[in-house]
Design a protein around this nucleic acid. Structure first.
Lengths: 153, 153
DNA sequence: AGATATTTGTTCTATATCGAACGTTCTATA
DNA sequence: TATAGAACGTTCGATATAGAACAAATATCT
């Protein structure tokens, strides 16, 4: 009788709860205009503005269908602008708007608060170890995905 | 300058990839009729059949809205049956059908295969340590959710 | 140069998820 | 015992997600 592993289930549930708690925090901080998922799309842009669709897709680890949809939402809400490239007219670049830059700082506050909650029962050493595992696992899964030609990598 | 933590992002992405890989495995094993999410709902039932909506909700960690929706799907597909309780007519019990019991074994095969892939770069000791962290984290988040009266706990 | 193949981002369809509003049934209270 | 309140599961509306099909643009091959 093999030992029952449940990493997948645990991860799924942790993610669900975190998302809910995070969205709740956003509400508490009056950041209703932005969701956790939208934050994840903007995060790479906050680190480097004006990047290509492909780069953003890679950083946010989303399928192109999802990213396109999220960009629709963000553009409607006035957070980003799509800019068609001149050299290759198939491609677009994504730029933050001024409106967005105001949000950024507030979002970071929430993000920090979230990390506090997330790791409140963990020591520094444990966090490092845990995130080390997570990173190894993610890399390994990305590898598997590539081998199986899954699309959204 | 605070150290940048990214547990939330890592977890979200690990979960996304696992889900895709898992759904792909289900396809490979000709288990098209069931999805990863459906499996997660049936898993508690495989351990103990004929449990209440509330117990299943607790075990699967889903909101009642989502569970109701998933039960619709599973009932349509002939995997489960809702049974209205006689004592308390508000409540229902969930029962597996014969059809489902055939699936179960196949599903476990896929599940084991998934665990193999998931942990292929981890030693036994590391898996135990990692899942220990995950369980602690999940418990801690459940605690936070309760304190904030989030609904789907 | 022209034909074919590939790449890019969008759109369509389906799934899973949640919160809020709802009707039904049970419980407690006045 | 009648009624107000609570609990239960469903339904509705919205969000985030991916795969497949698509049109436009570019690259490759003969």
């Amino acid at each position: 009788m093999e030992k029952l592993r449940e990493g997948g289930f645990l991860i799924t549930k942790i993610r669900q709860l975190s998302q809910q708690i995070f969205n709740n925090l956003l509400k508490d901080y009056n950041l209703n205009e932005i969701s956790a998922a939208q934050g994840r799309v903007m995060f790479p842009l906050w680190q480097k503005d004006n990047i290509s669709f492909q780069e953003l897709k890679r950083k946010a680890l989303l399928s192109k269908a999802t990213l396109s949809y999220m960009l629709d939402k963000l553009e409607e809400a006035g957070h980003i602008k799509r800019i068609r490239s001149e050299e290759d007219k198939r491609t677009i670049n994504i730029k933050l708007t001024k409106k967005n830059k105001v949000l950024q700082e507030k979002y970071f506050q929430v993000s920090n608060k979230m990390n506090e909650i997330f790791y409140k029962d963990f020591s520094e050493k444990e966090i490092n170890e845990f995130e080390g595992y997570l990173r190894r696992l993610l890399d390994s899964l990305i590898q598997v995905s590539k081998e199986n030609k899954l699309k959204n990598i």
